[in-house]
Amino acid sequence: MIVGQLTNVLLPFETPLPPKRFLAIGAHALSERMLQLVSALALRQSMTVLDCGNRSNMYAVARLIRPYTADPVSVMRNIRLSRAFTCYQVLAMIQATARHPMSGPLVLLDLLATFLDEDVKLKDSQRLLAHSLDLLTQLSHQVPVVISTRPIPSIAENRNILLEELKACADVCWEEPLPLPNTQKVQLELF
């Protein structure tokens, strides 16, 4: 697996990733591709994963790296990760990350998931997200910061502004193309 190529195939970002803010938007917060990206990065260097939407399936990562290394244990140890389950915890997790110098890329999985929680007032979600994005901007001066998120579901339409704020903050933004509308398959004439 050649990391540069893979990153490029997975997400159309320039490689090797420079210290910038990359945003990828797609269904399921592009879980599969992001885990592939994490695998590709971890094969080369130490890196940090902040899981904001319970998407860090490390079994999948272990399977992905296995064909490319004789020492999967060391590669799995290259991944430093933490999970947060509320937007208050997400901010605290990013604050904790920002307190220490970073040595490798930072990947945030499904960043907006907890900010859509209807038990949290939109105003509070916005405030916490703004703090988080400020810190991520600072971190992006040191290391590449790759963020994934999913489109805002229709039941949380009033929170679209959060995605807009996230997009506005990104240096590079890529959105997964929408699936083509179903077209009726027509049986070709056999005779």
Partner: peptide
């Protein structure tokens, strides 16, 4: 009032072993 405690940082391997 609002719990801010997140999971301690661990390696990918430790997550597999503990979760």
């Amino acid at each position: 009032y609002q719990k801010r405690q997140f999971e301690e940082f661990k390696s990918g391997l430790e997550l597999i072993q503990s979760d």
